[in-house]
Amino acid sequence: MSEILTIDNLWKSYDSEQVLCGISMSLKKGETKVLVGPSGSGKSTLLRCVNRLTAPDGGLVKLAGVEVGEGNVNEIRRRIGFVFQDFNLFLHLTAIENVYVAPVKIKRESKPVARRKAMALLDRVGLADKADAYPAQLSGGQQQRVSIARALSMEPEVMLFDEPTSALDPELTQEVVKVMSDLADDGMTMLVVSHEMGFARDAADEVLFMEKGVIVECGPPEKIFGRPDNVRTKAFLRLISEA
């Protein structure tokens, strides 16, 4: 299978702090990779550099062979779904409006068509009955599921998840994890920053352990979680499994 997302030698620093130190990795179509690592290790920055919400200092990102740059960034972002830690749903729009606003405004889809598709997406994340609710009327887990539906509305080739469950209570986490697992099963290409070991075990083709801007170790989930080679990986996994 061909590589759909390629990250090659990506560098990024904030002021004097080096956050990404030459990260390279790639995703094949339909693959799910999970990034784990201590906070401040650069996982979120890496995700944001992929769709240039943060511009990297060096290196390159390719989506289906096309280099991502300032010139085509809006075009590329339409093909990459992004799910934020704190949802960032549009507060003045209902759930269904959140899901169809981008297809209507960007792709110029007609409202009835976009609305029908949005309803199907809300149904897919189990929230068809909440279509007319405003974000403030939804729980965190429901908001995050709407935001996944919103990201899917542009029919992206890749989905990026930036700690999608870390703002949620444990019982709400599961409903979001379920949606993500279904998505992975359906063949979506996904790059996920998450400490949800359950999700990583079930859905990930590969788990990457990142620390201080470097991918320290990577491998299938059973290897990384079962018998990691690196001492830092071991120490980190002990920490989060105790938490």
Binding site: N51, N74, E75, F84, N88, A102, A151
Partner: peptide, 18 residues
């Protein structure tokens, strides 16, 4: 305006003007 609102819009592919 919470900054996340515009960040989410940009992530969907809206131009700054959009």
């Amino acid at each position: 305006i919470p900054p996340g609102q515009l960040r989410a819009a940009r992530a969907l592919g809206f131009t700054q003007r959009g």
